[in-house]
């Protein structure tokens, strides 16, 4: 079943046309990844879905309802949580408070909020002991965990993740992606933007490759990995040989 559908979506920042008629479908329960170079329009796609940016053409549907042009506060109430690039943890709030505020889209009592927060600490044991630490004092990996937990607090049907590996050490990246794989087991659909193609394709069901705001190619991870254009976009390495294939 289609949970999210973008048809012919175009979006711009001022004079810069960042998306040019993008079509994209995410099915319920899938992990779909968007790949492409900087400036290809990956983040713009997520920003258009979550309402931070209003598309200047096209339509975005979520569970059958048109959501393009809705304000972010409305979009998140429908069940789309967006974990933005760079984590953006509130620097002056504690980890617990950061996570708690993730439930701002749901009208729930404070006690329930506290209960859900405790659940998140169970899911992310690494940050539980930093519950009362201020956001800015955390390392990048810890901040990414907080941002993920904050996103999950919204109980989203669809989670938008923008470059969760950004600036993280390889070991931490693996940790983050193990959690992303686990998130899918809870039935949450994930749309993942990632620069780290290999690890993104290792968890995804399908992938899309964008270039200058357009779809270049889409398909299963294996097919994309073997696609010359994808490899060219990432390493320019047409000469790079087979030995670099994922295990």
């Amino acid at each position: 079943m289609k949970l999210l559908e973008l048809s012919e979506v175009s979006a711009a920042y001022g004079a810069v046309q960042a998306l040019r008629g993008l079509d994209l479908v995410v099915g319920e329960g899938e992990i779909v990844t968007l790949l492409g170079a900087n400036g290809a329009g990956k983040s713009t796609t997520l920003r258009s879905i979550s309402g931070l940016l209003t598309p200047n053409a096209g339509e975005i549907r979520f569970a059958g309802q048109v959501i393009s042009g809705l304000h972010p506060e409305k979009v998140v109430r429908l069940g789309i949580a967006h974990v933005p690039e760079g984590r953006r943890v509130f620097p002056g709030l504690s980890v617990r408070e950061n996570i708690m505020l993730g439930a701002s889209n749901r009208r729930i009592a404070r006690a329930e909020m506290a209960r859900d927060t405790a659940e998140m600490f169970a899911l992310f044991p690494d940050i539980a002991r930093f519950a009362d630490t201020l956001g800015w004092m955390l390392s990048g990996g810890q901040q990414q965990m907080v941002a993920l937990a904050r996103g999950l607090m919204a109980r989203p049907r669809l989670l938008l993740l923008d470059e969760p590996s950004l600036g993280l050490a390889p070991l931490i990246v693996q940790q983050v992606f193990r959690i992303i794989a686990r998130i899918r087991e809870t039935g949450t659909t994930v749309l993942l933007v990632e620069q780290n193609a290999r690890i993104a394709l290792s968890v995804a069901d399908r992938g899309y490759v964008l270039e200058t705001g357009r779809l270049v190619v889409s398909g299963k991870p294996d097919a994309l990995w073997n696609n010359e254009e994808v490899r060219a976009a990432y390493l320019g390495g047409k000469r790079l040989s087979e030995e670099q294939k994922p295990a």
Partner: peptide, 15 residues
């Protein structure tokens, strides 16, 4: 406080 620290993220959370 959240709004004063990051308006965009605050709106993404539904604040």
């Amino acid at each position: 406080q959240a709004v004063s620290q990051d308006k965009e993220v605050a709106s993404l959370l539904g604040i």
